[in-house]
């Protein structure tokens, strides 16, 4: 496990301190993509769970309007390639960080680079609860119980909300406790639970579209 701190990058050309590791706004030059770069440094925000969505949007647009291949059509083949790669990375970073669960997942993967978490372990009472829900869902799907499905969807979406609102406090706690392992384990269980819930929700959504 390694501590994640906001990394600092400087321009390969002019040496200025970089806002985004992908581009230097001082000398307007694309930067080569280093091993050290991650989604947070690509967007120029600090590596923590608490992300201001407005700031994220603003940063994304600001950086995208320098990196985008549309502005490199007449450049050298290397620059063109770099612009494609940097833009792809920026898009991935933005898509990942704007979604709280994807962001949490990503942050976990950064914090626990060498730890292999069990992606099946779930919170203690969660599985029991889900078995019951799943049985109900199967029955509803079989009986085409639209009313029931609508209610079920609401229940699942509320559980989703609960999980989401638990993420920020957990990440905050992570920074303040001596032994972060237990917090991390709990976080991982909640993220696994989120995936489980999503699969159930998808089943209802499929039913709705067919």
């Amino acid at each position: 496990m390694s501590e994640v701190s906001s990394k600092s990058f400087s321009c390969e050309g002019c040496g200025a301190k970089l806002v985004s590791c992908l581009f230097c706004f001082d000398c307007s030059s694309l930067q080569s993509i280093s091993e050290e770069s991650d989604y947070f440094s690509a967007l120029g925000i600090s590596s923590e769970f608490d992300v201001d969505p407005d700031l994220l949007e603003e940063k994304f647009q600001h950086i995208a309007s320098e990196l985008h291949p549309d502005f490199y059509l007449n450049s050298t083949p290397q620059e063109k390639r770099l612009s494609e790669r940097a833009s792809t990375l920026l898009n991935q970073a933005y898509d990942t960080l704007k979604d709280p669960f994807k962001r949490a997942d990503y942050l976990m993967s950064l914090k626990c680079k060498n730890v292999k978490w069990n992606d099946r372990v779930l919170p203690p009472t969660f599985l029991q609860e889900m078995f019951t829900l799943q049985e109900e869902l199967d029955e509803m799907l079989e009986n085409q119980d639209q009313q029931g499905l609508l209610k079920m969807r609401e229940v699942l979406e509320n559980r989703f909300q609960d999980l989401e609102s638990g993420l920020l406090p957990s990440f905050r706690m992570l920074d303040s406790v001596e032994e972060p392992e237990t917090v991390l384990e709990k976080l991982q269980m909640n993220l696994n639970a989120e995936r489980y819930l999503r699969r159930l929700l998808d089943r209802i959504k499929i039913e709705e579209t067919t």
Binding site: A64, S65, H68, D70, F71, L73, N74
Partner: peptide
């Protein structure tokens, strides 16, 4: 025109 480098004040994503 934008792609030709004639302007860069907007971007179609």
């Amino acid at each position: 025109h934008l792609l030709a480098g004639g302007r860069r004040d907007f971007l179609l994503l």
